[in-house]
């Protein structure tokens, strides 16, 4: 499929993509432009596609009204920890389920897969009770531990397992003949080969943690420990009405860095995934 197209087909493809783009791009455009509009114009109808006036002070207000830099750091380091932890433990589990034969492997894999099936709303109350009894309410522990070890990590384990199943076994066989232990084989041979799959897992895990909304609201209570999606709801005027322009400025600042990372990483990410052969 990946061949040079005829010029006419090219124009057609460009045209089709541009039309399809509208519903994808307009909301983002609205978010960014509304962040510099006065509040009374944001919901004016019909909306101004190009703002009539630009008021960039909203971006400064974001940092005045909330400890936004601290919240940014919270989101960033939680997402980074979750990503690193998930990459490690899920690749270990995925490797074991794909490569190592041990009694009960299939049954245990099914048990792990259960985690894929449970919406977080279902278990939030018991989880809250557990973390309360461990004195971890209003700390970042639940937001780190549950994603790394709990339900959200199962997708990563699944992807890693599928990758290792597809990976030729010969390299490892040679190492086994040389008497290398399982962990050594995993760490020095299998894991480096799994870089593409790890890249995919990293992006999905990072985005999941970055966008988490319900859990932070339930577990965290002081503003300096909030994460970004939660902080976005906190920009209000003296009477509890939302300061939409400031909120949208904060929302823009939340989305843009991730988009930039995606632009830089997307080629590797897509090609990485291409080689994982996500096979059922």
């Amino acid at each position: 499929m990946k061949t040079e197209l005829a010029p006419r087909t090219k124009v057609l493809v460009y045209g089709l993509m541009c039309v399809l783009l509208i519903p994808f791009v307009f909301p983002t455009w609205w978010m960014v432009t509304s962040s510099v509009k006065p509040i009374s114009q944001i919901f004016a109808f019909p909306p101004d596609i190009i703002p009539r006036s630009f008021d960039f002070t909203t971006y400064g207000r974001v940092f005045e009204l909330q400890p936004f830099a601290q919240q940014y750091w919270n989101s960033a380091y939680i997402a980074a920890l979750v990503t690193i932890g998930t990459m490690l433990f899920s690749s270990m589990a995925g490797y074991a389920f794909a490569r190592i034969r041990f009694p009960g492997a299939n049954l245990l894999f099914m048990v792990v897969l259960l985690g894929l099936l449970i919406p977080s709303e279902v278990t939030i109350v018991p989880l809250f009770q557990m973390f309360l009894s461990w004195g971890m309410i209003n700390t970042h522990w639940p937001l780190v531990l549950v994603p790394i070890f709990g339900a959200p990590s199962v997708f990563a384990t699944f992807v890693m397992r599928q990758f290792f199943i597809a990976l030729p076994v010969e390299l490892e066989e040679a190492a086994r003949v040389d008497g290398l232990g399982r962990f050594k084989i995993f760490w020095t041979i299998a894991l480096p080969l799994a870089r593409p799959a790890l890249a995919a897992v990293a992006i999905f895990t990072f985005l999941h943690s970055w966008n988490l909304y319900l859990e932070p609201i339930v577990f965290l209570s002081s503003p300096d420990r909030f994460t970004l999606p939660q902080a976005l709801t906190q920009f209000t005027d003296a009477y509890g009405g939302a300061l939409w322009n400031v909120q949208l400025a904060a929302a823009s600042m939340t989305a843009l860095p991730v988009l930039i990372v995606f632009i830089i990483a997307q080629k590797q990410f897509v090609e990485g995934l291409a080689h994982t052969g996500l096979k059922g």
Partner: peptide, 27 residues
């Protein structure tokens, strides 16, 4: 990455009473 997590641990004061009030304003 790990250090702030450790320090984010709860600082329940021992002798004092800490009252918590939930409000819906963040103003």
């Amino acid at each position: 990455l790990i250090v702030p997590l450790a320090f984010a641990g709860n600082a329940w004061a021992q002798d004092t009473v800490n009252l918590r009030m939930t409000i819906w304003s963040a103003n």
